[in-house]
Design a protein around this nucleic acid. Structure first.
Lengths: 330, 330
DNA sequence: TTGTACGCGTTATCAA
DNA sequence: TTGATAACGCGTACAA
């Protein structure tokens, strides 16, 4: 089922077949019809491997992800794949969940398949590898990772400012003892939230207890609650670096410590995962603008490569505060 | 950065380069070393587009999915991508979240990229398209969808039997009024659970109230609770077709109806999503054997195409009952 | 073991 | 508008 066979059956040349399937090429209506008929009968589909080889443009965009099964990650993934498809691209998926250095191997995979671009949602690749990507004409998008590579697009959120906004909200709610529950990951975005929260609290005349443990998941949230809620001076306003941490924290606070939220304890999170809106949590949190993130990434990828020759392009998006019932009304 | 350039730099022929990167080809140690050096210096990577063209085997496996952001789907996706990578394949991702007939377009995408196989996690393709896939040498795996195509692998669970097992558990817990909360989707797997549950309940001398509404998500679970818990004879043992339905159901039962679980109401779900183990839910449920599903799929894909020429291969896996606190101990 | 020559399916170029 | 031909980067049969 190659163009050759379609051409023979339609009684035209191979070029005519190729033109029929190339948007904007000049074919007579009659030729076109006969080609399409023959293609339909034979079940012919253009071979994108060969097309990519010729055009030096595969149409493939590589998504490099870890922790796919996490609510926030899968939501972002969903948005990215949809928008990539709308832009005529196809998503290749590399899961970096296990060993270290796997981001580098993932990028090599992308290079081997001549991906037009790679979008990195987690982990940080070695400089030498990213350089290799750029040299081989691949575009690079880094989401929520802080790196300064020329020729890449960085998309970040206003983590620091968000930390400040939620500190103000806690104070308005009458909280006296603030705390920040973080993971040990020390990702720039997580640390940004922490620093912004602390800075704003200091301005408001309050100190912040910081505790860091494990990953950014539910279980770590439980452990953090056990550590923080047994302190002599128990916090009454806790900002968790992610919603999953917040869910674990709230569950432990309620079921193990018998605390009432928001009466005895105010909690906030970050990401606005679906579970945050469930009535068991009803969590006040910041929404990651996943749609905007994806559209910015795709727009940049689809755009010509001429405009930004060497500079690193950086975009900062605003996280929207979603007000729910886990913080008392001021 | 083609094999040609590497060959020139290494002072060997292009074939020598090709052989160096072909496992099991015969190259002298010296030639091999010089080729690898040159390749490293030039940042050369084999072009898998061209290799796929030659070998008539792209190494690409297409994952066709909708509702990616759903906990169960993303967990299965995670497992599949990991195991595919371990088997030396690469995952291509097609999201069918929007219009109808998009599964067919997804499969066409797979054909265009000459995917070695497609794994369908949701939706059901048209017969003509699957035939086209098979004719073009593509292997097809259907997970939890009931279809009878020769040459495909079907992986299903013992949904019917699971429904029966949980009915017994409810009766042992002393439940008198059973109910089944389902979505309107009428998927074979969902209907299997429903029928098995009803059949077993009848055997035990109990009738089952069945209600179907919306999708398989949290919100539908809330609505179902509102409908079922306002009935004259309120159910005291509810099997929800999925964990997400169960979460919505439990939240509504507790926060809107003030019911205590499992004292006044026993609930069970299906999938064993991460949230089922959270202490807010502590949900008794059936675990989808995602690891086994993925490994069966990958094993079949990796296996030679000789063994099962025309027959449809079907595998039924067992869902494991995960006992938690949402059902009283008998 | 090594190199030469050809074909994989496509698009781009050019002459008709 | 159409068809012949070259080229994309690779694997491999074949001859050396």
């Amino acid at each position: 089922m190659s163009a050759q066979e379609v051409a023979e059956r339609a009684g035209v040349s191979r070029s005519a077949v190729s033109r029929t399937f190339t948007p904007g090429a000049s074919v007579s209506a009659d030729t076109r019809r006969r080609v399409l008929e023959a293609a339909e009968a034979l079940g012919y589909h253009v071979n994108h491997l060969a097309r990519g080889l010729m055009r030096n443009e595969s149409g493939i965009v590589c998504l490099i992800v870890s922790d796919v099964a996490t609510p926030y990650r899968s939501a972002l993934l969903r948005e990215l794949t949809i928008q990539l498809q709308n832009a005529g691209k196809v998503a290749m998926f590399v899961n970096t969940d296990r060993s270290d250095g796997s981001v580098d191997r993932a990028l090599q995979q992308a290079i081997r398949y001549r991906a037009d671009a790679s979008i990195i949602l987690s982990g940080l690749p070695d400089k030498s590898i990213t350089q290799l990507c750029l040299r081989s004409g691949q575009r690079l998008v880094l989401i929520n990772r802080d790196d300064d590579q020329p020729g890449t697009l960085k998309i970040n959120l206003d983590d620091y400012e968000s930390g400040g906004r939620i500190a103000t909200a806690f104070v308005r709610a009458g909280c006296r003892t603030l705390a920040f529950a973080n993971s040990e990951a020390r990702t720039p975005s997580l640390m940004g939230r922490e620093r912004g929260f602390i800075a704003a609290a200091e301005t408001l005349g309050l100190e912040v207890v910081v505790e860091r443990y494990g990953s950014t998941g539910y279980e770590a949230g439980r452990v953090l609650a056990q550590r923080m809620l047994t302190r002599a001076e128990r916090p009454d306003g806790v900002f968790c670096a992610t919603d999953l941490l917040a869910c674990g924290f709230m569950d432990a606070a309620r079921h193990q410590f018998g605390l009432s939220i928001p009466d005895q304890l105010c909690v906030a999170g970050f990401d606005d995962i679906e579970q945050a809106s469930w009535s068991s949590f009803d969590l006040t949190t910041f929404a990651q603008p996943v749609t905007a993130i994806a559209s910015q990434a795709v727009k940049w990828l689809a755009g010509g490569r001429e405009d930004e020759p060497e500079e690193a392009h950086s975009i900062t998006l605003k996280a929207e505060l979603i007000w729910r019932g886990s913080i008392r009304k001021g």
